[in-house]
Design a protein around this nucleic acid. Sequence first.
DNA 1: ATGAAAGCGCTAACAT
DNA 2: ATGTTAGCGCTTTCAT
Lengths: 337, 337
Amino acid sequence: MPTVLDVAKVAGVAPITVSRVINNSGYISQETKEKVEAAIIELGYVPNTLARGLRSKRTNSLALVVADITNPYFTSMARGVEDVAGSSGYSVIYCNTDESETKEDKYANILVQRQVDGVLLVPAGGNARTVKYLENNKIDVVVLDRRVPEKNTNLVCSDSVNGAKELTDLLIKLGHQQIAIITGPDNVSTSTDRVVGYRNSLEEAGLSANEQVYFGGFNQQTGYESTRIAMRSSQKPTAFFAANNFILIGVVKALRELNLKVPEDVSVVGFDDFPESMLIEPFFTVAIQPAYEMGQKAAELLIKQINGEIVDNSQTIILPTDIIVRRSAGPVRNNPR
Amino acid sequence: MPTVLDVAKVAGVAPITVSRVINNSGYISQETKEKVEAAIIELGYVPNTLARGLRSKRTNSLALVVADITNPYFTSMARGVEDVAGSSGYSVIYCNTDESETKEDKYANILVQRQVDGVLLVPAGGNARTVKYLENNKIDVVVLDRRVPEKNTNLVCSDSVNGAKELTDLLIKLGHQQIAIITGPDNVSTSTDRVVGYRNSLEEAGLSANEQVYFGGFNQQTGYESTRIAMRSSQKPTAFFAANNFILIGVVKALRELNLKVPEDVSVVGFDDFPESMLIEPFFTVAIQPAYEMGQKAAELLIKQINGEIVDNSQTIILPTDIIVRRSAGPVRNNPR
DNA sequence: ATGAAAGCGCTAACAT
DNA sequence: ATGTTAGCGCTTTCAT
């Protein structure tokens, strides 16, 4: 492979001049520039980013660390990140933690080794260890989707508390008094914030006594199992609030097995849903988080941070959730089953 | 950040000895090893992969170039790749071409700059340009999902011809005689192979005269529009074959709008579907491609290739598709509408 | 507007 | 079993 030196020889200039042409930096006469460009094409020269990064301390690469890229919510987010990163000359390395702190640690180490300029982190555990580790190693971090306790960071997330409040309000307005919420781990802010919004709504309606909260994982199994438990309890819910898309699917599967119709017998609302491109007929009443936009905003913030355009690195961007009313929630049945 | 030199000083050895400990290469006494490891921990040393790559000509990074990571088919594939790559010490850079050759070219250039060791390529255009470009730059390539014309390459794909044949056979067995296939671009092998399988089946049944093929894009819009056109034609299909998941959704949306029930009025089959985790009640009769496994196999092949464990770089791995019979295809209606 | 020298952090090649 | 030397390809720094 040809190097700057080869190009320099062909163009009859010094290597540094070639570098200046490639990077559009410093003063170069039009004439020299053309000579160099011709040589680059002639040789099929491609700059080596390893050498460049080693010398300049900038790799033009970012990392996106998410729970699982397989969830369309994170996939959209990833596209938002990539589209912004790409147009600013950054490549993106994706990492799936599967909500495991061990995997997160492993990746954090790899990212330091790779000298990425910045990391977009959806933290797996309920702690700031990874953020601190990355920052200690001079890597800029923007936390995405979830808050991290005991540490101020740049943060881009959506308004879970408010989205959950509105969703619960909506159920209450439909006459539901016994509403169960099924959510993720109790150490993840998106999971607990949605419970907070739910509680706020119940309280406002004087329904606090009917609170019914199930923690678990952000997966189908949790939705399925918690629904079965709830429906066997003395307080049978007339409505379910699923804290994410996979839980939502689990809830409905369980209800089907119990021969309960949605929304005739039981109402269901949730967070996230699936993209319209995957749905024949959108059915769920949901709070949609603007995942793609969150990815974009986070990437923009991170890049600014890397470029030193931001002094304060504890900026919080909270995007609103969008309530979409569809058919999965209806008025409570008055006739007892 | 500490370097090998810092570690070497603390441990009282030469830098190369530190390198040997990090890479587990050459002979090191247990004693020295422990001294070095202690120094590494003491200083919080993390190796710099840029320097390492520059020197050793190996970056331990791969790239996966797909049409659109937003399609669950490619997302699964990506997880397959990442899981294998990760466990072999490789990081993966993902690139979305959105089926555009321009974007593919742009990424190919970036990947050469980044000195990735290998590329897993789902080629956007119907040509071998990118493969040649990468190979000219000494980067190993495994082509994924689709064949590339006029060039022997390592290839991992699924058996589109056979899957399409079986799916069409199934419709014919149900009594359908007028079957339309709606597929992707006419320069993509997955798109054309599925037409070939479809044709083979019709021919075998003596139904070649009824052939009805719609090319377009692998997206919902194509499914929707082609379905409307087909249903307005003189040969109204009694069954549709959608060549991928998004087309499938488009077909069903169009049929719904025409007040046609699936499968009572019209039968529908397709390729790919969506993961069960996203489906309340799987409905479509489909040919499933083992996307995750394809990603795994391709990554394994690529890594072997990189390690020089394979001489021949035109190895083809074709994985079988799996026909799942569900409810979207039924017997043809005998009473005319 | 251009160039010379040096060095980023690591490991290959060659000692010892 | 360990060390010395050199250099990967680029850009920073300091000339001119």
